[in-house]
Design a protein around this nucleic acid. Structure first.
Lengths: 345, 345
DNA sequence: CTGAAAGCGCTTACAG
DNA sequence: CTGAAAGCGCTTACAG
């Protein structure tokens, strides 16, 4: 019996079981490779010594880390917490740990994705940040580790990495159709952040569909935003100052929709009677607003799960020729009070 | 020059620089230990070979991992994302990685805190979960690693581990005083989860202070909750069904306050005129509700930062006799529309 | 200031 | 089915 804080090594187990360290290793990682007798002796010795394999030693020997890294633009942004939760669900079940890093944290040394592999920090990377520097991504390809990196929620043009994301285009069309069905003739949009790849997708698809359905979309009704509450409130100011206002607004995020709602309600505008509002995401609070927020639901947990599954498959079979993989997760319109009841036909 | 995806080892650098691996190691980790000449040769060879030290090898040799683990009850709960952000800020600056694990995820194997150290998974642990099994915590002490574990936000009775958390008692008193100043005579409380250690603190301190200030607090006005939106909405139902209602409510979380607000507004109750409302946390949306939510602000990022700092200090000096450390982070009342203007004196 | 050598704790061909 | 031995890639006493 060893003293409590002197951890048992594999050699201690081998001695206690009267076998070699090789047999201990096999009994633990590949039980069918050893005789019943050996296996039982080892198991008992493990119990007795409290043995647990040392990760660093195993990692060094096997050239794996058993971890995957999630690169997140802003850890304090709750949007990502559900995606991480999905990643965690499948990764932890597969025995992988999850590392998180904040790519916008100034004090963090800039992360070069390829370095993650040369440093032996993680076996794979999930990128949730659409703004990663292109060179950083290119280096992944240069080092032949492109099968060990996937995008989730975001993607990047020209970098042929796998991407798991919502059906943003369909979400935008659903929003346009819903506003049309509610009888609106003039509609506007609050955009995502400039330079974000999601922004043109949601905007252009919404505008196109809205116009196809016969609704007017003036350029001045396309308002800038950055996904955050404050930019939604600012958009409300802009709209309130207009002589001719749209009667329906599609916001590229729920948070902006809520900021916008605050701005309108504070000015005494009635929702949905005077202006109807659709968000994007379906954050938890959306259902509990007054009026509750109609929105396009993104299944963020599912995106995290699928991304982790895709990554794990590639890690376990890195040499397979993975086709250019783009997984689009369906979205869903959730009708609530902010767009009001559909007109009776 | 090696082929691109054949990573350079320390021996490759040593050869390129014409020195021993020991000198390479020293030049990199402790530059003042080697001559200028050696240092420059090494640096140049590192540049040339693209060398980066392998983590697993270093970890095995130094018996450290360079990582800290955050144990989180529910990763999809946005409450924790800001705390993690604070942890990340200080940890990454100190060169540590952050591992996250969801303690409520059923598919995750139950985590025994002491195993984190014997497995060599992390050098320290920050527990954000008030419900960790006591045995799991006890084992930490049994293995002498109690200097490598801290609580953040939560704490546990009888386990003498360091804890960094908000001044919950003061927050509750601030809420009571604010309601008294606003002229309320009858007040109630929506509680946190049963069995959570925060729950009696916030409740009892609020009730005590409220009564001391001459306000009535009936037992039936103390409503159950679990920090979530739905339980706040349920509390609204309960209140609405009462003949005699309190005129002021202190909710143990913002989320419950928002669910409660929805219930009242939907029933046509005016806030703050008929019922005033105070939350706890100051989540981002609180300022953007209509009416905006008066609340007790918790500095969650700061809690994360302090917890990480305290943990890192202990990791770097584990044998020092750390006093029983309880760091209480101040809270602040943020007055908004849901409690209305203070009456003019 | 420097290098040769040991060793961290595993896993896995290899030989039997 | 089993064991002896090599080796993953570092760091650090030790000796000079």
């Amino acid at each position: 019996m060893k003293s409590p804080n002197q951890r048992a090594r594999i050699l201690d187990v081998a001695r206690a079981a009267g076998v070699s360290t090789a047999s201990v290793s096999r009994a633990l990682s590949n039980p069918s490779q050893v005789s019943d007798e050996t296996r039982e002796a080892v198991l008992q010795a493990v119990e007795q010594t409290g043995y647990r394999a040392n990760r660093a030693a195993r990692n060094l020997r096997t050239q794996k880390t058993g971890a995957i890294l999630a690169l997140i633009p802003n850890l304090s942004n709750p949007f990502f917490s559900q995606v991480i939760s999905g990643i965690e669900q499948v990764a932890s079940q597969a025995g992988y740990s999850i590392l998180v890093a904040d790519t916008e944290n100034q004090s963090t040394p800039k992360i070069h994705v390829a370095d993650v592999f040369t440093d032996g920090i993680a076996d794979g990377v999930i990128i949730l940040d659409g703004f990663m520097e292109p060179e950083s991504i290119e280096s992944v390809r240069a080092t032949g580790s492109e099968n060990l990196v996937v995008y989730a929620c975001e993607w990047a043009e020209s970098v042929g990495l796998p991407s798991i994301r919502s059906d943003n285009a369909e979400g935008a069309r659903l929003a346009a159709r819903h506003l049309a069905e509610c009888g609106h003739k003039r509609v506007g949009h609050i955009c995502g952040p400039k330079d974000n790849i999601l922004t043109p997708t949601r905007r252009d698809e919404f505008v196109k569909e809205a116009r196809a359905l016969g609704m007017e979309v003036r350029d001045e009704w396309i308002l800038p935003g950055d996904f955050r509450l404050a930019s939604g409130a600012a958009a409300a100011e802009t709209i309130l100052a207009m002589d001719q206002r749209p009667t329906g607004i599609f916001s590229a995020s729920d948070m902006m929709a809520l900021g916008f709602m605050k701005g309108l309600l504070a000015a005494g505008i009635k929702i949905p009677e005077e202006i109807a509002l659709i968000g994007f995401d379906d954050v938890a609070i959306a259902a509990y607003m007054h009026p509750s927020l109609t929105t396009i639901r993104q299944n963020r947990v599912e995106i995290g799960r699928i991304a982790a599954k895709a990554l794990l498959e590639r890690i376990q079979n890195p040499n397979k020729d993975w086709e250019h993989f783009q997984h689009i997760v369906p979205v869903e319109l959730v009708g609530r009070e902010s767009t009001g009841p559909l007109p009776q036909k």
